[in-house]
Amino acid sequence: MSTTVDLLVPFYGDAALLREAVASVLAQDDPNWRLTVVDDGGPDKSPDALADRFATIGDERVRYLRNPENLGLTGNFNRCLELVEHELAVLLGCDDRLLPNYVGTVRAAYAAHPDAGIVQPGVRVIGGDGEPVRTLVDEAKRRVYAPKVTGRRTLAGEELAVSLLRGDWLYFPSLAWRADALTAVRFRPELRVIQDLALLVELVVRGERLVVDDTLCFEYRRHAASESSATAFDGSRFTEAGEFFADTAVRLAEHGWPRAARVARRHVSSRLFALTMLPQALRQRAGVGALARHVFGA
């Protein structure tokens, strides 16, 4: 099994959390990886110091690149796609952590299912302090939307589209992608927080398969500072989501997947999420209209 995993980190954020992410890569049991950090001009006022820290790592599998100008979230994700060179690629969050068995786990899953475009390994959710946390969103993912898997399971076609559109239970930064599938698409510049689901649906429509492996090997950090949290409270997330689901329903109907089209049109889980945001929006008097339209609209 000679597959190498490209670990790409689109960075704009906390340098201390980035150091944790990098340390987790260096601690991998399986040496078949290459790490690329793509700095999009984050808040660190001493970017040269960050570059110097990477230079001291002394591992030829690690490289640090800084964009000459700020590309923005989606632009930097697409820049990372341009840098993929190996068979598997991961868009690792700059505040997430790999457990030591991550690379070995996704390589083994891919070796067993080389036709799969996406591998979802087992994930543990952590908070800003790095300790395990349980949230309503993640409990819903695990208990309501995610399929029950013991060992490995493969999903594809309309079944997979329906599952993801009912509630996106995947953890995007933990996914390992077959490189030729991932680099054949791009993140959509008009989307801010739902571009991960948009990309997944695009690949499913193109015929890519998902392998779920229940081996715990990834720590996903959930905290209030995230882009998705901020846009949830101001309501813009749901304006974007409503437009995405409407467009997707039309496309899936034309593709011959009527059940998936109905699920997209209803987008019940997204409406329920918006409903949970309404009380705080009312207190803050912000984003109420966008949230209400998403919850109660057609």
Rank of each mutant, 00 (worst) to 15 (best):
P189L: 04
A176N: 05
T276N: 08
E243V: 12
D196V: 05
G242N: 10
L203T: 08
S270P: 00
N101F: 04
T150C: 06
E131K: 12
G287H: 10
L155R: 07
E202D: 11
G167L: 08
D14L: 01
A198Y: 03
R237Q: 13
R143T: 13
N78C: 01
F244H: 07
N67F: 05
F238V: 02
G122D: 12
L275P: 01
I126D: 06
L191S: 10
F187W: 04
T215Q: 13
T239C: 02
A146T: 04
R206E: 08
G130Q: 02
F172T: 02
G122H: 12
R97L: 09
L71H: 08
A198R: 11
E202N: 08
A179N: 07
W257C: 06
T56F: 10
F296L: 14
L73N: 06
R124Q: 14
E227C: 08
F273L: 11
A140I: 14
R186N: 03
V125T: 15
L136Y: 14
S229T: 13
R107G: 14
R142M: 09
G41T: 03
S24Q: 06
R53L: 13
D138H: 14
N76Q: 09
G122T: 10
L35K: 01
E87V: 08
R166V: 08
L282Q: 15
L164Y: 05
R178A: 05
A179W: 01
F273C: 07
R265H: 09
L164F: 09
A111F: 06
V90H: 05
V5D: 11
R79C: 02
F218E: 07
N32K: 00
T183I: 03
A198T: 04
L92T: 03
A89Y: 05
N67A: 10
E243F: 13
A232H: 03
S24Y: 01
R178C: 02
A111I: 10
R259P: 01
L91T: 02
P68L: 08
L216V: 11
Y64K: 04
V137A: 04
D168M: 11
T154F: 09
E202L: 06
R79S: 03
L203E: 04
A108G: 04
S236K: 00
S226I: 06
R34Q: 14
G122A: 15
R34I: 00
A232M: 09
R97A: 12
L182S: 05
Q280L: 15
P10I: 02
H223S: 13
T150P: 01
S2Q: 14
V288M: 03
R285D: 13
R34W: 03
V106M: 06
V123K: 07
P47I: 07
C217S: 12
R283V: 15
I118Q: 00
F54E: 03
T239Y: 11
E159M: 07
H223K: 06
I118M: 15
A260R: 06
E243A: 15
F218C: 07
A225I: 00
T215G: 12
D234C: 09
V9G: 08
E69W: 14
A55S: 15
Y102M: 05
A111Y: 03
A23V: 08
